[in-house]
Design a protein around this nucleic acid. Structure first.
Lengths: 198, 198
DNA sequence: TACAAAAGATGTTCAAGAACATCTTTTAGG
DNA sequence: CCTAAAAGATGTTCTTGAACATCTTTTGTA
């Protein structure tokens, strides 16, 4: 059997990374298989050796963020891997709302880059999207300080808030307003959690 | 001059309504001019008598929500037009997070249906989107109870939260989780504002 | 009642792109 | 070093859709 299984896996990963980058930037419909394969250093013909349809790749691209073992730069630069508990939750919020994440559209969280696309997508894509959300909800639920309401409930609201802030900020063409939205979101989250700035 | 100016205006409005419905459901790229015109009871050829490009219509469709004088059903059924101040702000939140709004994709707020599309769009579309956001921010800023932080700041965070909750809920294929997200969002908003349920 | 100007319909062009069919290259195993 | 099986490249088909060009219909005005 020619080409090792690892070779194929690596190629597959390259395709998914290329796809994630392009989908994040341009959305599902505006990206062509040819573009994705070219960015991965391949030609369009090989695509169907890895995926049976464009939608399958879309699902894989969303899932990649949840299954990726190494953090994105905007995560690595803001989160101390040794942190635990409340300090960790706070760092996750700061990473998520950071300038770096705001600007890094290529490696952005799919919840920010693709929510409209996913809401029109098939069940598989939505399932992948849900996994991403549950991962983040789980991280918050496990690390939020105790409170009156259930931790999952508060974690869900927190995710909605930071996702909403980033989604709106990305849709602005005025950078000052985009910053204002992220700032206001961060302040509100901090107040709710009882954290103090700096 | 044949056809009255009102006739043309009415036709234009029909086109925009049809477009808004279809864009909300399927996104910018997945909708064809032919579909839009058919839904408006016209054929594709007449399109360019009203708009110079598909993107122009997109902008008009987003703006329509901000400029529409009569409220959508999901607004009318949840907001008492006589309400003022805090009671009004609360009703706006309830309408926004309502089952009816969640289900009414056709007449949904564009901030929920189209944020990913808009973030990839041109400046004109983003400008229209910003107008929608500023309208909602203004409504909250004017009607939120006094607090320590500036009302605009709190209004922005509130908009981010309800938009985020609805955007995430719409991207779920599991109705129970979608409801859970909206519920958690509403509870958090109420707690922050100091409102009590029921 | 004829006319003209604009709305709207019909028809055409051109390019893009998903899917797939068929070549060519690569490399593990004998 | 030969072979074959799979990866990947090249090439083809067929549909779709934006843009625009050119008809036809409508209706206010003279």
């Amino acid at each position: 059997m020619p080409y090792t299984a690892e070779h194929k896996q690596e190629t597959r990963t390259r395709i998914i990374q290329s796809a994630r980058r392009l989908f994040n930037r341009n959305g599902f419909a505006e990206v062509t298989i040819d573009e994705i394969m070219s960015e991965a250093g391949l030609t369009h013909g090989g695509f169907y050796k890895h995926f049976s349809a464009k939608e399958d790749l879309y699902e894989a691209a969303v899932l990649q963020f949840a299954c990726n073992d190494r953090p994105e730069p905007w995560q690595a630069h803001n989160i101390d891997p040794a942190a635990r508990g409340e300090a960790l939750a706070r760092m996750i919020v700061e990473a998520y709302l950071s300038d770096e994440h705001f600007e890094d559209r290529d490696r952005s969280c799919p919840m920010i880059a693709l929510p409209s696309d996913v809401s029109r997508g098939n069940g598989a894509v939505k399932g992948a999207f849900r996994q991403v959300m549950e991962m983040m909800v789980g991280a918050f639920a496990a690390n939020l300080p105790d409170g009156e309401r259930p931790s999952r409930e508060r974690a869900l609201a927190l995710v909605a808030q930071v996702v909403g802030g980033m989604v709106l900020a990305r849709a602005m063409d005025d950078a000052a307003i985009a910053d204002e939205i992220r700032d206001s979101t961060r302040k509100q989250v901090f107040e709710t959690a009882g954290w103090t700035e700096e």
